[in-house]
Design a protein around this nucleic acid. Structure first.
Length: 613
DNA sequence: GACATATGTCATATC
DNA sequence: GTGATATGACATATG
């Protein structure tokens, strides 16, 4: 009376004992245990929680990648691909597939609910295929779900074979749990992990190794889980299945270990013990995490790009405003430069020429008084330098208060006339102090020493306004300024050069700051991603641990349920001859094993016994 | 003196 | 077409 899981499940809540009361011969006991509810829930999770279609597709792609086969675009291609290893099992039609999981349950089960009593009879659904001779006629045709599950089953086996000896990455030895703690810490420099390898290796061994081999792999499909029907070959064809899948029978994975099994098969069953739903869950999680990694990488690029874009936009805006900002050092520079300019009018010092800078205007302007002072004094340039690695230094500058994320570097070119080069912060404070305090008239040699080349050139050319104005005035005002003064061509050329160089200097500073910010943001993004990666891996390990615990509990429940079963005469069911099948409503059916029993199962008298805890 | 770093400058592209 | 800006490349200054 090996009836397909779907048939028993089809009974659902209606599968009362009277429904199967007409069965004879074999005692069918319907149990209803609270623990069975858990099992049922687990089975439901098998399909609904763990195995999305994308998982199957992804897994299938992996399989295809291994086989170097073109990716199936539809179920037909997938069906053709699996034709070689399905051993001739006929796919007759295809049931509607759940949009999310690809399950065929919706059509399969409701139909059985109505016709279950009839459908289990051979007369109603005669066997039409030799290959399906031993398969109950009511067995629904293998649909896409089954195909995918077949693929998953094979992948599961392959993965277990690989991972049974693969240690968890990051842990030199021991269980994944023991290795997880060290692995998922936040090292100062996290080691990149190959997700495609490490994740699979990290998860599967823990599941396959922690379980005793309770299930007999040789038992036929009667013991197969109903909600996740794997390949269901004829009972008499089990050897064929074994030949196809190697030593491991994918069916009967829930059978107790003491039931009719050789040691080798029991060992093989141990590998399979990671039941289908568990494997599917693991695969699903692994795939999800892998996809998550991909998404993180892609997401990172997008998020970072957005962030960088915002940052750049912010920089750009600030930069544009900075030249006009009150915090801009222009004011201080103006005062200083004005002083310098006024001093220059006294012609108390000679100006050097352009040392190494020979624009036409500069040459024309500066040549006459070349060498009087000794040329360019680079020391002053340091006054204007700002460490853009340490933006906090800006906070100490009163004139920069409120600027916030200001990436400009146009500190006062002659802001403070410090006696000696200072740090930007000190220079800024001194500049503010000088600005607020009494007018400080530096000596001309000091001005000359600490002026920029363009300032010296401007003084040499007797430009009547400050370089700050030259550089920072809007073009209209700048032109008005030029118009107000009667300037020579040489002076005009120098002024335009000063303006061009001054603006470009600021632009270069901003450009470098942006570049630095970009680097800093990217580094921060890398750190964030590494942190997220570690967190996700830790979560994954926790999930796997939880699944393993559920498996253990389910196994114990299975054994407990079987131990409590009694036939009508109060005799226990030999586990070697019977298997348990679970109904969607929490009921449990005891079905005999073997092909003969399967045939008898067409018209058995089944006794269902509710036994709910 | 070699080297690294910071900065200025130029040339060019883009808006 | 012009001006402003961005940026790579190079030169220079400095520690």
């Amino acid at each position: 009376c090996s009836v397909t899981p779907g048939e028993y499940l089809s009974g659902g809540g209606d599968a009362s004992s009277d429904r199967y009361g007409g069965f004879n011969g074999v005692g069918h006991v319907l149990l209803s245990l609270q623990d069975i509810d858990l099992i049922d829930i687990l089975w439901r999770q098998d399909i609904d929680l763990g195995a999305g279609r994308e998982v199957f597709n992804y897994s299938n792609r992996q399989k295809e990648s291994e086989e170097e086969k073109p990716s199936p675009q539809d179920s037909k291609e997938a069906s053709e691909e699996q034709e070689s290893w399905r051993n001739g099992i006929n796919l007759q039609g295809s049931a509607p597939v759940d949009g999310e999981t690809g399950e065929s349950i919706p059509e399969q089960f409701p139909a059985r609910v109505v016709t279950s009593e009839v459908a289990v009879s051979n007369e109603d659904v005669p066997s039409t295929s030799q290959g399906l001779a031993a398969v109950p006629a009511a067995e629904p045709p293998l649909d896409l779900e089954q195909q995918w599950q077949d693929i998953m089953a094979i992948m599961e086996l392959q993965a277990m074979e690989v991972n049974s000896t693969a240690p968890l990455p990051g842990s030199a030895a021991g269980t994944p749990e023991s290795g997880a703690a060290g692995q998922f810490g936040l090292p100062a420099r996290p080691t990149p992990i190959n997700q495609d390898v490490s994740l699979h290796q990290a998860s599967l061994p823990s599941c396959s190794q922690d379980f005793p081999p309770p299930f007999n792999p040789q038992l036929d499909s009667a013991g197969a889980p109903q909600r996740a029907p794997l390949l269901r070959p004829p009972s008499g064809n089990s050897s064929n299945v074994n030949s196809t899948f190697g030593a491991t029978n994918l069916t009967g994975i829930f059978l107790p270990p003491h039931v009719n099994g050789s040691a080798s098969n029991a060992t093989a069953a141990a590998a399979v013990l990671a039941d289908p739903f568990g494997s599917l869950l693991e695969e699903a999680m692994l795939d999800e995490i892998s996809l998550l990694d991909l998404a993180m990488e892609e997401g990172f690029s997008q998020a970072q790009a957005s962030q960088l874009e915002d940052e750049l936009d912010s920089d750009s805006g600030l930069s544009l405003d900075s030249s006009r900002s009150p915090a801009s050092p222009s004011s201080s520079e103006t005062s200083c430069s004005s002083a310098a300019s006024s001093s220059s009018t006294s012609a108390t010092f000679s100006e050097e020429g352009a040392v190494g800078y020979s624009t036409d205007s500069e040459v024309a302007a500066a040549e006459p008084e070349e060498g009087a002072v000794g040329g360019y004094q680079p020391g002053y340039s340091k006054l204007c330098r700002m460490s853009f690695q340490d933006p906090t230094q800006f906070h100490g500058l009163p004139q920069l208060d409120g600027v916030g994320h200001n990436h400009t570097y146009n500190l006062p070119l002659a802001s403070a006339f410090p006696e000696r080069p200072e740090l930007p912060l000190a220079a800024g404070k001194k500049a503010a102090r000088d600005k607020q305090g009494a007018k400080f008239q530096p000596p001309q040699d000091f001005l000359d020493k600490h002026s920029s080349r363009d300032e010296r050139r401007a003084r040499a050319m007797k430009i009547p306004f400050s370089n700050d104005k030259i550089i920072n005035l809007p073009v209209e005002e700048f032109n008005e300024l030029l118009a107000k003064h009667h300037l020579s061509e040489a002076q005009l050329a120098l002024i335009r050069d000063i303006r061009r160089r001054g603006k470009n200097k600021l632009a270069a500073q901003n450009c470098r700051k942006r570049k630095l910010d970009t680097i800093i943001n990217l580094e921060q993004g890398v750190q964030d991603l590494r942190r997220d990666k570690a967190r996700l891996l830790k979560e994954k390990m926790e999930f796997l641990r939880s699944i393993r615990q559920m498996k253990q509990k389910m196994q114990s429940l299975y054994q407990e349920v079987f131990a409590q079963l009694r036939d009508e005469e109060g005799r226990p069911y030999p586990p070697s001859q019977y298997s348990l099948q679970y109904g969607a409503d929490g009921s449990v059916l005891v079905t005999p094993r073997g092909a003969a029993a399967a045939e008898q199962g067409r018209k058995p008298e089944k006794k269902q016994k509710d036994k709910k805890k």
